[in-house]
Structure formats: C-alpha cells, structure tokens
Design a protein around this nucleic acid. Structure first.
Length: 469
DNA sequence: TGAAATGTTGGGGCG
DNA sequence: ACGCCCCAACATTTC
C-alpha cells in the first residue's frame, strides 16, 4: 500500500513532516514533484526562480537517491490528473504533502484534496514552512493582526515551534516506479545562458542551505545587528532562496539559533534578536497573504487604489536596467539582474525610488522582482512592496521617501557596494560616489540622473495629497 | 526599517 | 559682566 509524498515547496528530507509521516507508515514511498506553472497563475515562477528550482530538484533527486529512492518528476497542466495517473500505476492508497499558502495554491490543493478523498484516498497535509499556521493567529476580537509588533508578540506568547524532524537515511521503494520526465524536459534553465552570475553567487540545495546557516550562525547576533544594513558587507544570512523552496525550514533555523544563543549564554534576549525577528516578518507576510489574498494585486488600504501613478515605460526600463543615474539604485538593480538577489536595505531604496521618485505603480516593481529574484516569494514580495508603497498593513507611510544619496552615504559610506556593481564609477572619489553628477569631473560613461530627487520628492508628496481630497 | 523643515538650547566670540 | 549674535547640535514637527 504505497504512500505518495507530493513535494512542492519543501524540497528537503530533513524536518519534512509529510515525508516523516509517510516513513512512519512503514509502507513503500513514491516521492513525486509536479511542475504545473499554469496552476500558479497569475504568479507562475519567474526566470530566476526557475533556474533555482532546476538545481533544487536535481539536488533533491540526489538526496533521495542516497536514501535508495528516486524523485518522480512530471510536467503537467493539471496536477490532479497527474496524481491520479501515478496513483493508478503505483496502487497508492494514501497521499501526503506539506501545505502551501499562496492563494492559487490554496485553491488548487483544496480541490485536489476533495477530489482524492471522494475517490477513497487518504490525504493528509502538514505544515513544513511556517512557525505557526496563519489561521491560528487572531487578535482578541478574533480578527487577523494588521500590525507587526502585536502579531509577533502574540506568536512569541505561543511558545517555541516544535523541534525539527530528522531526515530519513533510507526509504522503502515501491515494486514498480511510475515514469518520470527528465529534469531537462521541464526547461527550467534559460535558453540563452545568462546565469553565470547566479552560479558564482549561489549553490542551491539543502546541504548548501545548512552550510550557509552554519557559516552565518557565528555572526547571527552582534554582527548581524551591526552589519545587516551594509550592502557592501556580507552581513545578512542569505538564506531567503533556500527558505522559499523549502531547502531549509524556519524551525531548523529557529532551533539552530536557539542552541547557539544558549551556548553563548544569551538566555532570553535571543528571541528578540533582529535575525529571529526577520523570521517573524516572514511569518507576518504569510499571515497577511493568507488573510488578504487579493493583496498581490490590490492595495490593502483601499484608498490607495486611487493613487495617481504615472506609468512611463522609459522610466520603468531605466530602473530595471540600473540606469537611473543614482548609484545606490543602479547598483542594486544590477546586483539583482546579475545574481538574482539584492540586499534588503537596497530593496527598500530601489523600491522607494521606483514608487516615489518615478511614480510607477508598485505592482510593476513587484512583477520585476518576481521575475528576477531567486528568492521570489509571493508573501514576502507582496508585503515588501506594499510596505514601501505605504498602502499595506503596518506600512511605511507614503511620505517616508528615501533619499538615495543619504541612504547611500549612510549605509555604503566607502562606496564598496556601488563600485562593485557599477564598475564605471570605480574611479570616482568617495566624496562623490553617491552623487557623481556633482563631481568636478563627472564620469562620462555613467548615465545622467533621470529625475532630480528633491523635485521628485515634492511631486510625490503632491500626488499623495490628491488622495486626501 | 526617513527626511526636511522648523524649533530649541547652549557655548563661545565679541563689542 | 553683560547682551547679542552665530551656529552647531539636538529635538520636534511635518510631510
């Protein structure tokens, strides 16, 4: 009586509750991954995500092989019929998976669960990717939280998440394997190989995720709080893509940090450390997406639907390509394009610039990040953009407008980050590195500013004022 | 997890 | 010694 383990965004063997439940039955296990991007409409994985997914699947295949098992991979336009076919050929009676929380995925899973149960199959789903299920976190008046601090305080009051589950070392195999599509047939890798910078920056896979966590752990407290806002320094965890694809779980991270903190004698303060709080923001993002599923397209604050954006293809393109003439903005956009990732501080700066200096709709920025980030995550991306645009829950007010020069000066004082990603500015002295237009001899190969920030700021504030009428 | 404008304070130079 | 001005430093308000 074979058990199907349907992998989705939980591409790991450790701390995988669905896999552990299957293993606990003692029955043969068929691990399957179904690539069905059309079911994720309107947010099918973008180019950078697909690159990562290819390598994550290759890595999971290898991990399963070491357990004596396999990964059955299928490309499909209809997960349910693919599952039914695999169920037929394997004689499986039971199917398990770990939950997803994106609106399209929730709807899809619900349909599949109902249909399979109607056909007499046992189906069970588990939580593998959140510290708490979104529907369990409610205010005293039984409403979803819309402010981070009380949300996270409430989560903390619920105690610690369970300890992560160990990875199985061997898996029982079925008498007959279902057919599997070759990984290459999913065509996840780009036709024109633009991924050089990705390869240099990243090693996808669960083992690499744990190695990265190990490396980062040493610096997870003091160094993190001092360095996390410095894009020219590796001060952040860089775990986001692994978390997105489930190559590592938040419980594994939480408990690794807890053990380290206790070893260092940080007996209580660690739970309020900035890095753990970042896990809280991720939880908050999922909570909001689950409770307000239309926020991927619509502002949570309804009044902002009337914001007078000024769509402008040329401005948008200059931003995308990193040719705005503002060094910290251009550095960020080029780091994103070349490596599939951008430092979080710079995400805020570039997003503020697109929305406030260029008056482009935040949804345009969200779309671009979705396509170019290896850690593109619908929940975090939506929260981030609505936060910057001032139209989300607990968002920065719209009038908080980042000044790209002072942000650059403050967080990249020696211009290390700018010089790395905008090489044509390499020779500009520190004094002018964040405002090269003001230098005595401006660098001719670097673009002129497409807007004047002081002026753009005033225009943005005037646009905001129209909302109040 | 802003920045600019405006207000307040206090030390020092100076007549 | 005193008042006045300047201005930096900090605080508050406003967008």
């Amino acid at each position: 009586m074979t058990v199907l383990v349907w992998f989705r965004q939980d591409l790991r063997l450790s701390d995988n509750p669905a896999l552990a439940a299957a293993q606990a039955t003692g029955e043969p296990i068929v691990p399957i991954y179904i690539f069905a991007p059309s079911e994720e409409s309107p947010w099918p994985p973008g180019g950078a995500s697909r690159w990562w997914l290819h390598h994550a699947l290759a890595n999971l295949t290898e991990s399963l092989r070491r357990c004596g098992s396999r990964l059955c991979i299928r490309a499909s336009a209809d997960s349910l019929s693919t599952l039914r076919e695999v169920i037929r050929t394997t004689g499986a009676r039971r199917i398990v998976w770990n939950r997803r929380y994106e609106p399209a995925a929730v709807a899809c899973d619900q349909t599949i669960k109902t249909a399979l149960r109607a056909s007499g199959l046992e189906t069970t789903s588990y939580n593998a990717s959140l510290l708490n299920e979104p529907w369990t976190i409610r205010t005293k008046s039984d409403r979803p939280f819309q402010v981070f601090t009380p949300f996270w305080r409430h989560c903390k009051s619920l105690g610690e998440p369970p300890e992560p589950l160990p990875a199985p070392s061997a898996l029982r195999v079925p008498a007959t394997w279902p057919s599997s599509d070759p990984l290459q047939s999913l065509e996840l890798l780009p036709r024109l190989d633009w991924a050089d910078g990705f390869r240099a920056a990243w090693t996808p896979g669960s083992a690499a995720a744990h190695a990265q966590l190990e490396r980062f752990s040493e610096a997870a407290f003091d160094d993190y709080s001092n360095l996390r806002d410095r894009p020219g320094v590796e001060g952040t965890s860089r775990l986001s893509p692994y978390l997105h694809f489930g190559e590592i779980s938040p419980r594994e991270i939480f408990h690794a940090i807890r053990r380290l903190a206790q070893a260092q004698g940080r007996h209580s303060s660690w739970r309020d450390s900035q890095f753990i709080t970042e896990l809280g923001w991720r939880e908050f993002a999922y909570h909001l997406l689950y409770q307000f599923p239309n926020t991927t397209e619509m502002p949570l604050r309804a009044g902002y639907a009337r914001f007078p954006w000024k769509p402008d293809a040329a401005a948008l393109e200059a931003w995308r390509r990193g040719k705005t003439g503002y060094p910290i903005v251009d550095a960020g956009m080029r780091q994103l394009w070349q490596t599939g990732w951008m430092h979080n501080r710079v995400r805020m700066i570039t997003a503020s610039f697109l929305v406030k200096d260029l008056l482009q709709p935040w949804t345009q920025g969200a779309r671009w990040f979705w396509d170019t980030l290896v850690d593109a995550d619908l929940a975090s991306n939506t929260l981030g953009w609505q936060w910057v645009a001032g139209c989300g829950a607990d968002a920065a007010p719209f009038f908080r407008i980042f000044n790209p020069v002072s942000q650059g000066t403050k967080f990249d004082p020696e211009g290390r980050y700018v010089r790395r990603w905008v090489p044509e500015l390499a020779g500009v002295p520190d004094r002018w590195i964040h405002q090269p237009w003001a230098a005595p001899t401006p660098e001719p190969n670097y673009p002129q500013r497409i807007v004047d920030h002081d002026q753009a700021r005033k225009i943005a504030l005037a646009a905001l004022a129209t909302l109040k009428g």
